[in-house]
Simulated assay, not measured.
Amino acid sequence: MTPTLESWTSVRHRLSEQNKILLALDFDGTLSEITERPEDAVLREGNAPLLEALGRKPNIIIGILSGRALNDVSGRVGVPGLIYGGNHGLEIRGPGLDYLHPAAAAAIPAISDAAERLVADLADIPGALVESKVLTLTAHYRLTPPQYHDSIAMIFLDTVGPLLATGACRVTAAKMAMELRPAVDWHKGYALEMIRFQLASDAFPVYFGDDETDEDAYDAAQSVGGIGIYVGPPSTETRAICRLDSPAAVSAALADLLALT
């Protein structure tokens, strides 16, 4: 359920009062525009220098938390000195932090095998894409005609069914996608909490995201008095307490934050 939303002006005022800020952001749909194919996503023009300049501020720690593999998202952002979290925070790396969830590492062979089988099983579905991310996998259907969506879901669940039956993995939903993850109690919210605890327990957390998988991070930030900022249309329900229209608005907010600090 969407709470009463704060304006960016109100959020900006709250940020101006903080001594230290943990600034965490998703990548796709937040720092980049949503693309039909995951491999086509790029950092919005101008975001790299903004992140570099904000990262040089002594009172700001920046974390990028993505569903992409860690090497993938860190390569697409390309800004050194930041904290990067891949696979929804199952792997985190940056100055002062190097983490790989042990249970997730143990599931790598099973998920790799499932990815290979899904590529074959979805080969006849137009537009279906399987993204193997080592620790997780995602089946995308953004390019698939709507009449095939139910078929993709059935094939996906049938293919990964044995892993679900053993309790080794679980399925989650994302934008026009289904994801297979290790069945560990872990998500972006826990990743945000780890970064804050390890590197800046006194920092004010603010998290920007656009997807259902970001809701846990909004909760984590707001549970300690911070701010969750949803990026997207007003018709979408979210637990974040602020909303911005688009990745372009995120870029503007970053520029505003830079001027503020």
Score class of each variant (00 low, 15 high):
Met1Phe: 06
Thr2Leu: 12
Thr2Gln: 15
Pro3Gln: 02
Thr4His: 15
Trp8Cys: 10
Thr9Gln: 09
Ser10Arg: 12
Ser10His: 13
Val11Trp: 03
Leu15Thr: 02
Ser16Val: 02
Gln18Arg: 05
Ile21Trp: 02
Leu23Gly: 11
Leu25Asp: 13
Leu25Trp: 11
Leu25Val: 13
Asp28Ala: 07
Thr30Ser: 14
Ser32His: 01
Ile34His: 09
Thr35Leu: 11
Arg37Tyr: 03
Ala41Asn: 05
Arg44Ile: 14
Arg44Tyr: 02
Gly46Leu: 08
Ala48Ser: 14
Pro49Ser: 05
Leu50Asn: 07
Ala53Gln: 11
Ala53Cys: 05
Gly55Pro: 00
Ile60His: 05
Ile60Glu: 05
Ser66Trp: 00
Arg68Trp: 00
Ala69Asn: 09
Ala69Cys: 02
Gly75Ile: 00
Arg76Tyr: 01
Arg76Gln: 12
Val79Gly: 14
Gly81Trp: 06
Gly81Thr: 09
Leu82Gly: 11
Ile83Lys: 06
Ile92His: 14
Arg93Ser: 08
Pro95Asp: 08
Asp98Ile: 09
Asp98Gly: 09
Ala106Arg: 09
Pro109Lys: 01
Ile111Ala: 03
Ala123His: 11
Asp124Arg: 10
Asp124Cys: 03
Ile125Ala: 07
Leu129Asp: 08
Ser132Trp: 00
Ser132Phe: 03
Leu135Lys: 07
Thr136Gly: 14
Thr136Ala: 15
Leu137Glu: 06
His140Phe: 00
Tyr141Ala: 13
Pro146His: 08
Gln147Thr: 11
Tyr148Met: 08
Ile152Asp: 02
Ala153Thr: 09
Met154His: 13
Leu157Glu: 15
Gly161Ser: 15
Gly161Tyr: 11
Leu163His: 00
Thr166Gln: 12
Thr166Phe: 03
Cys169Gly: 12
Arg170Ala: 15
Val171Tyr: 00
Ala173Met: 10
Ala174Val: 05
Lys175Ser: 15
Lys175Phe: 11
Arg181Gln: 15
His187Ser: 04
His187Phe: 02
Lys188Ile: 06
Lys188Asn: 03
Gly189Ile: 03
Leu192Gly: 06
Leu192Thr: 02
Ile195Gly: 10
Phe197Asp: 14
Gln198Gly: 09
Leu199Gln: 07
Ala200Leu: 09
Asp202Trp: 01
Phe204His: 10
Val206Ser: 11
Val206Ile: 15
Tyr207Pro: 11
Phe208Tyr: 10
Asp216Ile: 01
Tyr218Ile: 06
Asp219Ala: 11
Ala221Asp: 04
Gly226Asp: 07
Gly226Leu: 10
Ile227Asp: 07
Gly228Ser: 04
Ile229Lys: 07
Thr238Asn: 12
Ile241Asn: 04
Cys242Val: 02
Cys242His: 03
Arg243Gly: 05
Ser246Val: 13
Ser246Pro: 14
Ala248His: 09
Val250Ala: 14
Val250Trp: 13
Ser251Lys: 15
Ala252His: 14
Ala252Gly: 15
Ala255Arg: 08
Asp256Cys: 08
Leu260Lys: 01
